[in-house]
Design a protein around this nucleic acid. Sequence first.
DNA 1: GGTGCTGGATAGCGCTATTATCCACGGATG
DNA 2: CATCCGTGGATAATAGCGCTATCCAGCACC
Lengths: 213, 213
Amino acid sequence: MRISELSDRSGVALATIKYYLREGLLHQGEQVAATRAVYDDSHLRRLRLIRALLEIGRLPVAAIKQVIDAVEDESLPVHQMLGTAQYALGPAVEPEPSDDWQAARAEADRLIDERGWTIAPDAPTRNELAQTLLTLRRLGMPTDLSRYAETAGGLAAAELESLRLDGPRESAVEAVVLGTVLYGRAFDALRRLAHESESARRLAGEDQPPAAG
Amino acid sequence: MRISELSDRSGVALATIKYYLREGLLHQGEQVAATRAVYDDSHLRRLRLIRALLEIGRLPVAAIKQVIDAVEDESLPVHQMLGTAQYALGPAVEPEPSDDWQAARAEADRLIDERGWTIAPDAPTRNELAQTLLTLRRLGMPTDLSRYAETAGGLAAAELESLRLDGPRESAVEAVVLGTVLYGRAFDALRRLAHESESARRLAGEDQPPAAG
DNA sequence: GGTGCTGGATAGCGCTATTATCCACGGATG
DNA sequence: CATCCGTGGATAATAGCGCTATCCAGCACC
């Protein structure tokens, strides 16, 4: 198909597709003549990936580019590609040079080690977790995340259960990355709903005088 | 304290504080003279709330304003204030006018009803959940979220367990909103870590020939 | 043989969060 | 009493991001 058809079928504006091509998010079409190129299903698929990461995952375009680059670097072993892609899903957090921060980072590491998880020592997610722990502590909120870690472990295992990582690279990344982002958002929404319900239960009848009886 | 001290102690640039004052995120200081006002711990506290929502929660300033407005509207019953604040935490999602969307929304409602959760019929989070379900379906991914819902319910209950909602308004909102945002981010990071570990386990040794033995 | 779509390049836009600049004033300080 | 720094208040400028619009030359296709 030509670019205009790709635009129609994907629902993405033509100018935007050109932009994605420029930015390297979308691979070039097959150049069939000097002023003509054809696109195929892989482009449609890629556009779906991009839009999902953008709209549901709210990832900045630069982060999506990192994911794409990992996919397209054929020399990268699969697990490393997945790691790189995954790292792009979280915000970049740089360590503060303070003792507080060191302690938080240590706690994050401990949380990981206690579960026997296999995580790269330089995984940026460690810092992300540390930063969150630090903020919690500074605000005087409870920082025991063991239960969260257990729960997260359970969910992650179940998610990967149904996933085949041994297919083509692009499929594997799509599955992992989209799964992370989409189920992440779903869970977050559910958690907020549960919160609403729970606090409704606790505050029931608080604003009216209690019913007689 | 004066505004410059507030800036120093909070780490927020003076011009930014002025901006927050203009936007109504930060309440005015006590006007002690025509060109002099004093700020106190409540301002420091508020700044911490704002920064946490902004940096950890990645909420747009407009959404933070909604939270603040809910806090400051004394006529709002507590549970309604919490609801309003909570709704600002999720992205606004407007329904597509399609059958697919209707179905997704129905599924979201069912997921909620099945658990006997008490959720306002017009809670925007319902749409957020529906949208996510729709995207999952369109991408051909599994859409059974019962387990997620169960898990989320458990976590939410535990979180509210340790929270007192009967204190001053600002504390209640802070607790709920910061809890939602911070523990949400923590859980998300943990989930990604668990993912990394799990896929490392599954792909172990895939790129090297398996060790002898 | 026109003409409509294409690739390619560059410029502009709309929004958000912030930062900078300017101004007049008045309280603290000497 | 002079002065001068920090202040409140207003407005303008900035930076980054995700597009979107414009222009152009060329060729495939009718």
